[in-house]
Amino acid sequence: MTALLMALPGAEQFAGHLRGRLGCEAGALLVHQFPDGETCPQLTPAVADRDVILVAALNQPDHKIMALYLCACVARELGARSVGLVAPYLPYMRQDASFAPGQGVTARHVARLLSGCFDWLVTVDPHLHRFHAMSELYPIATEVVPAAPKIAGWIAAYVERPVLVGPDEESEQWVGQVAAAVGCPYTVLRKVRSGDREVSVSLPPATVLAGCTPVLVDDIISTARTMIAATQQLKAAGGAAPVCIGVHALFADTAYADLKAAGAGRIVSCDTVPHVSNEIGMSAPIAAAVARMLAAAA
């Protein structure tokens, strides 16, 4: 029997792309909310003895994670053979240490919650910095789908004479991989963050930028302060308006408009988070990862 694929609210379009590639049956997922704010999921058709795949867009996660948790638990209660999660963007990965007295490592707690109700997880480029593998957090089967090949393909197709620019030291290894795939040079800026929305970066070498189109690449664009600071520095160095590429387009508040106003020539993202900037589709490699998970569960 084919797997049953269901989309949580906000993930319907991406789930449709996956269904087309996987040949799964489309399930209906009604997430009813009572007047007091409590959630009651309803899954159709019957999930007993079926492999169930839940697809979730987990930007702005706090009001979505409880619904996701209950949907997975109800699928198990109703006899699902296995329950898998496709979360193209996986939240709560940046709090991977206690950064101030009284804080905790929330990445561990969310991992424990999701691992308790899912058999496997597929995601795209989670923020693995202090943790170096998903297995350090998630005891369930996981597969990380890299966005670098798709981003490299897009750059090669749409940008003339690119030079990749990593906005901070954390991005160096990742940006280097994309640059190697494109076959172009790269440089990395040095970042100093003095608050959630206060960031400064170093000036890039003018010789690296000469005659090239700078392409800023980062995994997560949230407040966009790092991208904005890098864009301003690139323009101050006399370079062309940069192309700004992010894997996960979170764009809090006015961040997208602020980045455009700072002088970005083009803003592009992967479709891991629904946003007007989505131009790089990730459904093909994610579908391949899901197929491997289903085969392993068979």
Rank of each mutant, 00 (worst) to 15 (best):
V199W: 07
L70R: 10
A56V: 01
G37C: 05
G239P: 07
P35C: 11
L85M: 04
R292W: 08
Y158L: 08
H109N: 07
D62W: 02
F34I: 06
D51A: 10
D125A: 04
R161V: 00
R197K: 15
A255N: 14
T44P: 06
L259W: 09
H129S: 07
V110S: 08
R193E: 14
L78H: 13
K191D: 14
A237F: 11
L8P: 03
T106K: 05
L85D: 00
L30N: 12
E38K: 09
I155A: 02
V290F: 04
W120G: 01
R197F: 07
R50F: 03
A295V: 02
L58N: 00
V163D: 00
G211D: 03
P91I: 06
Q232D: 14
I267N: 04
P205I: 08
I220V: 15
K64M: 11
A46F: 05
L121Q: 05
V273A: 09
F251M: 10
A289G: 11
A147W: 00
G104F: 10
A111F: 07
V163F: 03
E172H: 10
P242V: 07
L30S: 09
E172G: 02
G79I: 04
L68Y: 04
K64D: 05
L22E: 08
S202D: 12
A100W: 14
P91N: 10
G10C: 10
E160N: 12
L85Q: 05
L54R: 04
A287W: 02
S115R: 09
V83C: 02
L78S: 08
H127K: 08
P205F: 10
T2I: 09
A15N: 12
C24D: 03
K260D: 09
F131G: 06
I53E: 03
A179T: 10
L90I: 04
L189N: 12
W174P: 04
I65P: 09
P101M: 06
M282G: 12
L29C: 08
V83W: 02
H127A: 09
N59G: 08
H132P: 07
V145L: 01
R50Q: 02
G211F: 00
G20M: 09
Y92S: 04
S269D: 01
T44Q: 13
A296V: 09
W120D: 02
A111H: 05
G263D: 11
S202K: 04
L294K: 08
G166H: 03
T213N: 12
A206H: 13
E198W: 10
M1H: 11
A46E: 12
A298N: 13
A152I: 03
L43H: 05
S82L: 06
C244S: 12
H129F: 06
I65V: 15
S98Q: 15
L43R: 03
Q173K: 11
L29F: 10
C24M: 02
Y69F: 15
W174F: 07
A100V: 14
G116A: 13
D218S: 11
I280G: 09
A287V: 00
R112G: 10
E279L: 14
P146R: 14
A133S: 13
P162W: 05
E143I: 06
D36C: 06
A179K: 00
E136S: 10
C244P: 02
